[in-house]
Simulated scan of single mutants.
Amino acid sequence: MIGKVITGKSFGGCVRYVVQKPEAAVLDADGIRTDAITAMVADFNLQRRLNPDLEKAVGHIALSWSIHDREKLNAQVMVDRAKEYLEKMQIRNTQYLIVLHRDREHPHLHIVYNRVNYEGKTISDRFQHRRNARVCRELTLKHGYYLAPGKGQVNRQRLKGADKAKYVLHDTIKQALHHAKSWQELESMLHGKDITIDYKHKRGTDQVQGVSFCQGELSFKGSSIDRSLSYGAISRQLEQNQQQALLLSPTSKPHKGIAQAGFSAPVISTSRDLARHDNTGILESLLAPATGQATDSANMNDYHFKKKKRKKKRRIHL
């Protein structure tokens, strides 16, 4: 179950769109007459006058279910779900119209409501999109409706505008993430698709806190496109790709113990061997790196040496 929330200015345009669809059926209404479209619009506008300063008084919500939920739904059940949805969305004490549409394969209905309630107060739309996502998920889990496993199930051909752009970004970034092993590589791959990355830093520092993806005039936070595209999630994916690439590299060989960190086992000389050298030779022999041993000081940073603490002898005072 998913919901799409819209606010507008014209009750006339919204009501006509909802009611005049082929095979549309009015399922329920409160505070308005349903015998004619003109009467519906007039009733909505009459209550709107209680709060003339509210420019966008039209509330419009489309509630949709998966085609897998057809057997669980009928007209009365859909009305009950719509009312439950409105209550959880804190849309109450106001006019509403619930209309069933049959122009798509999946079951769906439209709700038109007045953002000016019966007392003339405004029904807030603050954080409405976030609340809509939470409420739809709650009702889906509560009533056992089909829960799509991910964005792969979305019909891209039906999307328009910003929604379409968001899914294009999702698919493009996901494809690039299969191959990129660093943020630089990811930027380069996306640049070829006219997508740029904008990093959000913690104020006054170079610490990255978030990431946004921009294409043309549109920009979306990674986490708003998909949770798997937040800065932290992408960083983990890039690190996994890098580790996997190292494991699959033909030049990499499994090592054990000290050799795993890039060091060869030390060469141990016997006393017979040492006897053949003078003091200088002995010193050079001890200080010389083993064959194949990396001499770069950067390798030494892989180790953390700890000083052995000497046990202090306790003095006995006589």
Rank of each mutant, 00 (worst) to 15 (best):
3 G>T: 04
3 G>V: 03
7 T>F: 07
13 G>D: 08
16 R>W: 04
23 E>Y: 11
25 A>I: 15
26 V>R: 01
35 D>P: 00
35 D>C: 04
37 I>F: 02
37 I>Y: 05
44 F>E: 08
46 L>E: 15
50 L>F: 09
53 D>V: 10
55 E>V: 14
60 H>F: 11
62 A>K: 07
64 S>Q: 05
67 I>N: 02
70 R>F: 01
70 R>L: 06
70 R>I: 08
73 L>Q: 03
73 L>S: 02
74 N>T: 02
78 M>D: 08
78 M>F: 10
79 V>A: 13
79 V>E: 14
79 V>N: 08
79 V>D: 12
79 V>I: 15
82 A>Q: 09
84 E>I: 00
84 E>S: 12
85 Y>M: 11
86 L>F: 03
86 L>H: 00
91 I>G: 01
91 I>L: 02
92 R>F: 11
93 N>Q: 05
95 Q>A: 03
97 L>E: 04
102 R>A: 04
103 D>T: 04
113 Y>W: 12
116 V>C: 07
116 V>A: 07
117 N>G: 02
118 Y>W: 10
118 Y>S: 07
123 I>G: 02
125 D>S: 07
130 R>S: 05
132 N>E: 14
135 V>M: 06
137 R>I: 01
137 R>C: 04
139 L>M: 12
140 T>S: 07
148 A>R: 00
150 G>P: 01
155 N>R: 04
158 R>D: 10
162 A>R: 13
165 A>Y: 10
168 V>Q: 14
168 V>M: 10
169 L>Y: 02
171 D>Q: 12
171 D>H: 09
175 Q>F: 03
182 S>K: 06
184 Q>N: 08
186 L>R: 05
190 L>R: 03
191 H>Q: 15
192 G>F: 08
193 K>N: 06
195 I>Q: 09
204 G>Q: 03
207 Q>N: 11
210 G>E: 04
213 F>I: 06
213 F>T: 04
213 F>S: 06
220 F>H: 01
221 K>Q: 09
230 S>D: 05
231 Y>H: 07
239 E>I: 04
245 A>D: 13
248 L>C: 11
250 P>F: 02
253 K>E: 13
256 K>E: 14
256 K>M: 14
260 Q>N: 12
262 G>M: 11
263 F>S: 09
263 F>Y: 15
270 T>L: 08
282 I>L: 11
283 L>T: 11
300 M>Q: 12
306 K>Q: 12
309 K>A: 09
309 K>T: 10
313 K>D: 13
318 L>K: 14
